[in-house]
């Protein structure tokens, strides 16, 4: 079957020496990044090793409940990440709830679609398929949702007087927020569209490269990559729409008021 060169820990340690170049650059050019380089590198090693061990255990146990648990933890982290990337937040539960909810709905829907139609693993919850798929979709949906929400909140804050002027002529909130909603949707959508256009020419996707390195036929690897890209595009579209429309709703009320008082601005960072 598939043949690939197994890496030893010594080989990885050798590659890690490259980081010393970055550290040296930081010291010589006084970038002040030394500490962050070390912390990020250590985080990466610890996180990836943990994920490897968890996946290995999951594959052995093959319990649907454990798979669901891991999925819940992944969505939780994605939600936190979406929250942490925003300068402005909704007050209360919606501060992280909106991001979590829209990403969870989008990623689960799209992953279920792929598992139910294209891949059909047996059993369907087989973690070897469910978890990597969800991870890919979730990561990219996260980017779209964060960008879209950030743009929505920034542009409504910035265009407050224009939005209210429109409300004052008797326009409903949907009309007054239309420009901001469209701007936010575009901001969230564009990275995915650009990624589709550039893939294979400018950059070889990491997942496809990984499969090829692991001995998969290039054409088969390409098929997987295409599937993933379509899933990502669909997931981003759904998650972004949920987040932006949900956000627009939270920014207004039943009396068609612009409720910027429901936002808090995080200072510093």
């Amino acid at each position: 079957m598939a043949s690939y060169v197994t890496l030893g820990y010594g080989d990885i340690a050798l590659a890690a020496i490259l980081l010393c170049v970055n550290a040296a650059l930081s010291a010589v050019m006084q970038l002040g990044l030394g500490k962050r380089i070390v912390i990020s590198a250590v985080r990466m090693v610890v996180q990836l090793t943990t994920v490897g061990l968890v996946l290995k255990a999951l594959f052995v146990v093959q319990s649907p409940w454990l798979t669901v648990l891991v999925i819940a933890v992944m969505i939780g982290f994605a939600g936190y990440e979406a929250y942490a990337r925003q300068d402005q937040h909704f007050t209360g539960l919606w501060s992280w709830g909106l991001g979590v909810l829209s990403m969870a709905v989008a990623a689960l829907l799209v992953t279920a679609l792929a598992l139910g139609t294209a891949i059909r693993p047996d059993p369907w919850y087989h973690p070897q398929y469910a978890i990597p798929l969800l991870g890919m979709v979730l990561g990219n949906t996260l980017t779209g949702v964060s960008l879209g929400l950030e743009r929505l909140l920034a542009s409504t804050t910035q265009k407050r007087s224009a939005i209210e002027a429109r409300l004052l002529t008797g326009a409903p909130m949907q009309t007054a927020l239309k420009g901001c909603v469209r701007e936010a949707m575009r901001a969230g959508m564009i990275p995915t569209i650009n990624a589709m256009a550039a893939t294979g020419v400018v950059a070889l996707p990491g997942m496809m490269t990984g499969q090829i390195l692991a001995g998969v036929e290039p054409v088969d690897a390409v098929k997987y990559q295409l599937l993933i890209m379509f899933l990502i595009a669909g997931g981003t579209g759904i998650g972004l729409t949920a987040a932006v429309l949900g956000g627009a709703r939270l920014l207004s009320d039943d009396r068609h008021r612009l409720r910027l008082d429901r936002l808090t601005l995080r200072r510093g960072g």
């Binding site: 265009k159 407050r160 007087s161 224009a162 939005i163 209210e164 002027a165 429109r166 409300l167 004052l168 002529t169 008797g170 326009a171 409903p172 007054a176 420009g179 009396r255 068609h256 008021r257």
Partner: peptide, 26 residues
């Protein structure tokens, strides 16, 4: 409805906002 109220009770702020490029579009 709030939309009807704002047409019948019209508020003109001290620094009014504009959503289109020219006045005539408003």
């Amino acid at each position: 409805p709030a939309t009807e109220w704002r047409r019948r009770v019209a508020y003109v702020p001290a620094e009014p906002g504009w959503w289109a490029a020219t006045a005539i579009e408003h």
